[in-house]
Amino acid sequence: MFNYFPKNYMWSSALMLSIMAGGDLGQIDRQLAPLRDTEEADTDAWTRAWDRAGALQVEFAEEDLRRGLPRSAINRFLRASNYYLTGERQTPPGPEKMNSYELARAAFVKAVSVMERPLERVEVESPDGILPGYLIPARDVDGPAPVVVFYNGFDVTKELLYGFIRGEFADRGIACLVIDTPGTGEPLRLRGVPSRPDYEVPTTAIVDYLLTRPDIDPERIGLLDISLGGYYAPRGASFEHRIKAVAAWGGVWDYGALWQHRWDTRSKHTPVPFWQLPWVMGTETMEQALVRVREFRLADAIPHLTQPLLIVHASGDKGIPLPDAEQAFEAAGSTDKQLRVFDGTDGGEEHCNADDPDPARQLIADWFAKRL
């Protein structure tokens, strides 16, 4: 992986994820360069730098609109949202975090409002309250279209999910629903809804919603995840068989054991700050969070998975090691299953292939196109 911050794996990983979602290294470097060689990670300086990068793109986007350049403005607004969210991911809960998040949402909404084929904001009723998402419509499809539901991982949002996938499914005649679920995005940030181990609950609610839509084919619903979503999606599909195919962009096996190891060793290769675990788990202390996250393991669930399964992993993933993906693959009950490992020459070797994501992105989209 390109270690933009030589002394900070977490920050380098976050920067690469921003580029994966459509960020521009030149724009980023103009704001982040002063932080490259700092000995101590200054969270406030990090947040301010990304907020400046976002604000500058909003300013340019508004000028593009005044000049009658909507396509340029859309890209500017999307990058602004990306930059605000990249800073927000490493910012502890509080006013600064909420400010960055709201600026990110506003920039994304502005981008959507200018799109020639705008995304549709949807709100799914669930036992955890409303799960908000954006439906990316399929292109050139007569009648009901197949759809792939795309879940967040541990610390991203539906807006970043859109940056990861853009029109790859739409161009293949597949709709895509990027959605915030328990423990992510709006439910966590605006309503304090933590994650839950039984992810078949939100999965079933989402499928129920999709079945009400005449533009969606109820027999061709797929489920994709990224990072911790490597637990969420296989778990959900294991007990919700109206899902017809599932792909994990990053394999997960025992997330509790993984976090216990990170905490015991105070690992410097953790892609997120340690405070995020209690925040996402909805606990007051790290000790409580480490107990709760023990439930996030696939051993009892994934043997029930019978649908086609794709796991895409990276050979040098420092966030979730390759043996975790291999264990999930071996235990899956699917007969049609594939584990694809990229090694840094044919695709990204780091977490979620963020250092060279397009080969994984194309593989995933093509795999679903053949199975839905």
Rank of each mutant, 00 (worst) to 15 (best):
F2K: 09
F2G: 02
P6V: 05
K7Y: 09
N8V: 00
Y9D: 04
W11C: 07
L17R: 14
L17G: 07
S18A: 12
E39F: 03
T43F: 10
D44H: 14
A49L: 10
W50V: 07
R52M: 10
A55Q: 13
L56W: 13
E59I: 08
L69R: 15
P70C: 08
R71I: 14
A73F: 07
S81L: 11
G87N: 06
G87H: 10
P92M: 05
P92C: 05
N99M: 08
L103V: 00
A104W: 08
A106K: 10
A107M: 13
F108S: 05
K110H: 09
V112H: 04
S113H: 12
E116M: 11
P118M: 11
L119P: 01
R121P: 08
E123A: 15
P127Q: 09
G133C: 13
Y134N: 02
Y134W: 14
I136M: 13
P137L: 07
R139N: 03
V147M: 12
V148R: 06
F150E: 09
D155A: 11
V156S: 06
Y162K: 05
F164C: 03
G167Q: 12
G167K: 10
A170P: 02
D171F: 02
A175L: 08
C176A: 15
T181H: 09
P182H: 03
P182W: 06
G183M: 11
G185F: 03
R189L: 04
P197N: 06
Y199F: 15
T204C: 11
T204F: 09
R213A: 01
R213K: 08
P214D: 12
R220G: 03
I221V: 13
G222E: 11
L223Y: 03
L228C: 01
Y232L: 15
P234I: 07
P234A: 14
G236H: 11
S238P: 03
V246S: 06
G250M: 05
V252F: 07
W253Q: 10
G256E: 04
Q260A: 12
R262G: 05
W263R: 09
D264W: 06
S267H: 06
V272D: 01
V272G: 00
W275L: 04
L277K: 00
P278C: 00
G282K: 06
G282L: 00
A289T: 04
R297T: 08
A299K: 13
D300R: 13
A301H: 12
L309F: 13
L310N: 01
A314Q: 01
I320E: 04
L322T: 06
P323D: 13
D324K: 00
A325Y: 02
A328I: 03
A328N: 06
E330P: 00
S334K: 02
D336Q: 11
K337W: 10
D343S: 12
T345I: 14
D346N: 15
G347R: 05
N353I: 02
N353R: 02
D356C: 12
D358N: 09
Q362S: 05
L363D: 01
I364P: 03
W367Y: 09
A369N: 04
